[in-house]
């Protein structure tokens, strides 16, 4: 009989390796940054080398890439998209707008810090980040997954109340389904 601890560790290593090598990204472009995704995915930078691909629906995806500013209207859709995704799931905040509001810091209709509303695993800064930066952000995410540190989804589940409170502050007409994961 193998020691349980070591068996779990080996399973973890294999699991994390598999997760990190195939990241499917929801095709959900918000803000201006989405324009950097086509060059990242196509032949010049070819993100598929790293196992990064687009996926059609949130239910089959692993990564939610928020490519810029989010109006409160979009935030509502993004939260629903995120909650429909299956575990394991990761969020990448892309561009200065997701970090501190960027050039939309004084806008009446966009949120300024994405990590108040969704758990972000990796931020990529720049306005907008070039494909090299995007790929380096993804590689950072892969490293975190490999080390088992990309646990945003875990954080979201454990602190759901806190996130919900923040979300309700900006989404006035709250008509969201409740999930029981």
């Amino acid at each position: 009989m193998i020691n349980d601890k070591y068996a779990n560790k080996i399973v973890d290593i294999i699991q994390n390796f598999a997760r990190k090598s195939s990241l499917w990204v929801v095709a959900y472009g918000t803000g201006c940054g989405a324009i950097e995704i086509p060059p990242t995915m196509t032949s010049r930078y070819d993100a598929e080398r790293f196992g990064i691909r687009g996926s059609a629906t949130p239910r089959q995806a692993d990564v939610l890439l928020i490519t810029g500013y989010l109006s409160t209207k979009t935030l509502k859709r993004v939260i629903r998209t995120y909650e429909q995704m299956q575990d394991p799931k990761y969020v990448i905040g892309f561009g200065s707008c997701t970090i501190n509001g960027g050039m939309y810091w004084d806008s009446y209709n966009t949120i300024k810090a994405l990590d108040q509303y969704l758990p972000v695993d990796v931020f990529i800064n720049g306005c907008m980040p070039r494909p090299e930066a995007v790929i380096s952000g993804f590689i950072k995410l892969q490293e975190l997954i490999k080390e088992g540190k990309a646990n945003g989804a875990q954080k979201y589940k454990e602190n759901l109340e806190w996130y919900r409170e923040n979300q309700r502050k900006v989404i006035k007409n709250w008509k969201m389904p409740d999930y029981n994961w």
Binding site: I99, N100, G101, W105, D106, S107, Y108, T110, I111, K112, A113, Q116, N166, K169, V170
Partner: peptide
């Protein structure tokens, strides 16, 4: 500016 400051978290 005032509206954004009151309604959205500012880092």
């Amino acid at each position: 500016v005032k509206y954004a400051g009151e309604h959205y978290f500012t880092r």
